[in-house]
Simulated assay, not measured.
Amino acid sequence: MRILVFDPFHGAAGDMITGSLLDLGADKESVIKVMSSVVAPPGIDRVKRCGISAIGIQTNSGHSHRTLEEVLEIVEKADAPKNAIEMAKRVFKRLAAGEGEIHGENPHFHEVGADDAIADVLGACTAFCSLNIDATAVLPVATGRGYIKSAHGSYPNPAPATLAILKNGNIPVKITDDESELCTPTGAALLAEFRSKESPDITGPVKAIGYGAGKRDPEDTPNVLRTFIVESEVLNHDVIEILETNVDDATGELISHVIQRLLEAGASDACAIPVIMKKGRPGYLMKVISKSHDTHRFIEILSEELGTLGIRHMQNIHRSILEREIVEVSFPYENSTYNIRVKVGYINGTPVTVKAEYEDLKKASASCKLPLKTIARYAEDKALKDIE
């Protein structure tokens, strides 16, 4: 089980989060692509903060005052994976809720409505999704004291909206003597979105470490955000909810579309089981596996797409999860080489299941004109040999 740990010992901001995730090994090309669809291509460089090497992100654009609806429209049109776009939209809704709690309903975004902030959020969400993390933990976030300047004037530090977002996200804080803004509203909203509702047991070896640089470079404290990935060595347990509903007036094409939309929105799994309903009518039993804090999104999708009037909830379902990792193997064929990701599951350190990723197999099969199962067999055998 891959656990991502955020250690914001000197605060958090959007660019620091993106930089740290890139340093961990997130997909750099995808991050540049999505950020470039909002602003000019970002500068991504290795810098030093108080002697620590970190990834710095430079995003240049003007400032704009926008409503939530205007921001969401820009996010929706970004050139990003669907799951990253949906995650970014939830981040801005968290920001709007925090701003609204302090300033009233329908607030205009100021700093966080600028193109560079939108690019930071999209970049961070794209980087996070590319890491294939199973759970996320957030250690106490350092915040400063004193006063900071904002679009509304001089405010206490941390900013009221930032504190509201941290509260709503149940993020622990640590007040320090630093009189600068350590945690921004964007950083708080991203951490709240990434954090797993059920805190994982952070036990196991550290597999990767990343540092994301802040803009300032004080002499006494490294202005960086640290992240690291822990591979849990024990069988993990979590709590889920299962949603289900019966439908008898949906085509196979519609069912396929709904399942795809549910998965893109972040469902852990979704399926449709053929059933015989009352009066002998054929239908489907739709089932969705979800984290409890995400069920409202999937209820909306099921209701919108299927017109169902009732959805059953099975709450607090406990499930066991095998320790897992994604390994990448090379499949050489003629003059080309194809990279295939393979998911490996372990019990007590012993591999018990191995499965090549379908999308990688499909691309390789279409390119080299070999049966998909032939490539899958090679990739899975190669992954097991590499592990041994």
Rank of each mutant, 00 (worst) to 15 (best):
95 L>A: 11
95 L>R: 10
95 L>I: 15
96 A>R: 06
97 A>I: 00
98 G>V: 00
98 G>S: 05
99 E>P: 01
99 E>V: 04
99 E>R: 05
99 E>F: 02
99 E>I: 01
99 E>M: 07
100 G>M: 06
100 G>P: 05
101 E>K: 15
101 E>T: 12
101 E>Y: 11
102 I>K: 07
102 I>N: 04
102 I>H: 02
103 H>S: 02
103 H>N: 01
104 G>R: 11
104 G>Y: 01
104 G>M: 05
105 E>W: 00
106 N>L: 11
106 N>A: 11
107 P>D: 03
107 P>F: 01
107 P>I: 01
107 P>T: 03
108 H>Y: 15
108 H>S: 10
109 F>M: 08
109 F>A: 07
109 F>H: 05
110 H>V: 11
111 E>H: 09
112 V>T: 15
112 V>H: 02
113 G>I: 00
113 G>C: 06
114 A>H: 00
114 A>R: 00
114 A>S: 15
115 D>V: 10
115 D>A: 15
115 D>W: 08
116 D>N: 07
116 D>W: 02
117 A>N: 10
117 A>S: 15
117 A>G: 11
118 I>Q: 04
118 I>N: 07
118 I>R: 03
118 I>C: 09
118 I>H: 01
119 A>F: 04
119 A>L: 06
119 A>H: 04
120 D>R: 07
121 V>H: 07
121 V>M: 05
122 L>A: 09
122 L>Q: 03
122 L>I: 06
123 G>L: 09
123 G>H: 01
124 A>S: 15
126 T>V: 14
127 A>M: 06
127 A>G: 11
128 F>Q: 04
128 F>I: 01
128 F>V: 04
129 C>M: 13
129 C>P: 00
129 C>W: 05
129 C>H: 14
130 S>A: 02
131 L>I: 02
132 N>T: 00
133 I>F: 05
133 I>M: 08
133 I>W: 02
133 I>E: 00
133 I>A: 04
134 D>P: 08
135 A>L: 10
136 T>V: 15
136 T>I: 08
137 A>F: 07
137 A>N: 10
137 A>R: 12
138 V>K: 06
138 V>Y: 01
138 V>S: 05
139 L>Q: 14
139 L>I: 05
139 L>H: 12
140 P>K: 08
140 P>S: 09
141 V>W: 09
141 V>F: 06
141 V>C: 12
142 A>P: 13
142 A>Y: 11
143 T>V: 15
143 T>M: 12
144 G>Y: 10
144 G>S: 12
145 R>K: 14
145 R>C: 15
145 R>E: 14
146 G>P: 13
146 G>Y: 10
147 Y>V: 14
147 Y>N: 13
148 I>M: 13
148 I>K: 08
149 K>D: 13
149 K>Y: 07
149 K>G: 09
